[in-house]
Simulated assay, not measured.
Amino acid sequence: MENYTHTISELPGKILNLPFVFEDVVYMRGESNYTIFTLVNRKQYITSRTLRVYEALLPDTFVRIHKGCIINLAYLESLCNAERVAQLKDGSSIGIARRRWPQVKNMMLKHKLRTMY
């Protein structure tokens, strides 16, 4: 049995126990009605909830970069202007939607993240 370190009770009539805290999440991907969490230690967890459910509960260090992905700005290494790609500290590269690009750049500046190339 796993120890649950994060309990969400804001969901109407439901309590959801997650075996990690949001601060450990590097990024989240939505696949149909599932969300795949990728953590700092490269471990992945799958839940049967959509990204939209979690998006409302996340701290302000998280930003949706396209329809199927939310990243944690604490793990953002850099942004590539030419290709609109987010480079994460775990080595992942994730494309950013054209219409979300201005929001991601503003969030990066707000959180005083450094690199853009």
Rank of each mutant, 00 (worst) to 15 (best):
T47M: 06
N33S: 08
N41D: 15
A56Y: 05
V25Y: 02
T50D: 00
K14N: 04
T61V: 12
N17C: 03
T50C: 04
L73T: 03
R29C: 02
E23C: 05
E77I: 01
R29D: 05
P59F: 00
E83P: 07
S92W: 09
T38K: 14
M28S: 08
A56I: 10
L16Q: 04
Y45E: 05
N81C: 05
F20H: 09
A82P: 01
K14F: 07
A82G: 10
A82S: 15
A56M: 05
L16Y: 03
V25D: 02
N33H: 10
R42H: 11
D90I: 06
N81I: 10
A74T: 11
L39N: 03
K89Y: 09
C80I: 03
L58D: 01
T61Y: 14
D24G: 03
L18S: 09
R42K: 15
G91L: 03
K43F: 10
G91M: 07
P59A: 07
P59R: 06
G30H: 00
R49T: 06
P59Y: 07
P19G: 02
V21R: 15
S48M: 07
N81A: 09
F62W: 00
H66T: 05
N33F: 09
I71D: 06
I71Q: 10
L76P: 09
V63R: 05
T47P: 02
L51I: 14
L79F: 04
E55A: 11
G13V: 04
V25K: 11
V26F: 03
I36G: 01
L57Q: 15
L16F: 04
V26E: 03
T38W: 04
S78H: 06
S93L: 11
V40G: 04
L18M: 06
R84L: 09
A74H: 11
T35L: 12
A74F: 09
Y75L: 11
D90E: 06
K67W: 07
L76E: 10
N33E: 07
V85F: 07
T61R: 14
I36T: 14
R64K: 15
S32K: 12
D90G: 09
